[in-house]
């Protein structure tokens, strides 16, 4: 009886054996070894980070500086401390590390004024008997008392198509111009940057180029790749003042650089936070997640936005004025539009 069915038993066992084989074929590089994790992170940054020359940073020297602090006995807490100290040398707000117990990101806003108070804007400009503000997608908008359109866009991760209805409303109401406020916009999707900027130009605009790091040497880059903004959705041709502050970061800096190349747009406020790279996220063998910048964007004149995009008109919020309910950036933006 057993002999009769032996071949089926063998066949069934063979199938079970095969199904287990995939774990032999697909090995895991899982490792809690501190040196291996340090080296993997250092190498990934070396291969992908695009700003070593711009920041005058010798990454090999950084390795020699921090690597001796890591050995087989290094604890997770110590490794985190060494790794984040090493990454701080990059002075890049896109760089981050996530561990089960900690989160690291470089503070690119340190030393800069806030220059934005959302409560003040809402109380004294948007939430008044004579003004009705509306939230739509990522946008908050209103027609201010002085018949100027105001839009705040809080993140480039939110779809931009709803702005068409807002611009059409402003057009119907014959507003004098538009204050586009991207203060505290921490960035998001690059597609939304180009799509939103496309509302403010009637013709194709070459706004610059981007390069990707493609190898371990500091100057291993792809060829420069042109970046265009194409007209999209409702086209706005009246005066625009774009409000920026240091917390306008990454995609927001990219947007600011694109907008300042459009003739009817004036940028006003503070230097943006920079962040000209597209960061990608990976994992270390110990399971820690990290982000590293992989590309660099340059404006039409070759301007590197990594350090921030300066405004056409530099304005800081006066705290005394703020106490009186005045946002100096909105006030001066209104004056700019009135003058045009």
């Amino acid at each position: 009886m057993i002999a009769k069915h032996l071949k089926y038993v063998v066949a069934g066992l063979a199938i079970l054996l095969l199904s287990g084989c995939e774990r032999l074929l697909i090995d895991s590089d899982k490792s809690s070894e501190p040196v291996e994790n340090f080296d993997r992170l250092w190498q990934k940054v070396r291969d992908h980070y695009p700003y070593f020359k711009y920041k005058n940073l010798d990454w090999d020297s950084v390795y020699n500086q921090y690597r001796p602090s890591v050995n087989e006995g290094t604890s997770d807490a110590e490794l985190y401390k060494v790794i984040t100290a090493m990454l701080s040398e990059l002075k890049d707000g896109h760089i981050s590390v996530y561990t089960p117990d900690n989160y690291y990101a470089y503070n690119f806003k340190a030393g800069y004024a806030g220059n934005y108070d959302s409560a003040l804007v809402r109380k004294f400009y948007l939430d008044k008997p004579s003004v009705q503000y509306v939230k739509s997608g990522g946008f908050t908008y209103a027609i201010l008392d002085n018949n100027i359109g105001y839009i705040h866009y809080r993140t480039f991760n939110r779809d931009v198509d709803t702005i068409d209805a807002i611009l059409q409303l402003f057009e119907r109401e014959k507003v004098k111009g538009l204050i586009m406020d991207v203060r505290n916009n921490g960035g998001g999707q690059i597609g939304n940057v180009l799509s939103l900027a496309g509302r403010f130009t009637a013709s194709q605009l070459n706004i610059g180029h981007t390069v990707f790091k493609k190898g371990p040497e500091p100057d291993n880059f792809t060829e420069p790749l042109r970046v265009y903004v194409n007209p999209e959705g409702a086209t706005w041709t009246k005066p625009v003042v774009l409000l920026t502050n240091r917390a306008c970061f990454s995609a927001c800096s990219f947007f600011t650089e694109a907008m300042r190349q459009i003739p009817n747009v004036t940028t006003l406020g503070d230097m943006t936070g920079g962040g000209g790279a597209m960061p990608l996220e990976y994992e270390l063998p110990n399971g820690w997640r990290y982000r590293v910048s992989t590309s660099a964007f340059y404006g039409f004149d070759g301007f590197n936005i990594e350090g921030g995009v300066p405004p056409d008109i530099r304005v800081d919020m006066n705290q005394e004025h703020a106490k009186q309910g005045r946002d100096d950036l909105i006030e001066q933006a209104s004056q700019q539009i009135e003058r045009k």
């Binding site: 690059i190 180009l194 990707f212 790749l225 265009y228």
Partner: peptide, 18 residues
């Protein structure tokens, strides 16, 4: 790259995402 952007860029030298 695991993301399509580099191929998009390299296709004809133009960022054509939009």
């Amino acid at each position: 790259y695991g993301v399509p952007y580099p191929e998009a860029f390299l296709q004809d030298g133009v960022f054509n995402h939009q």
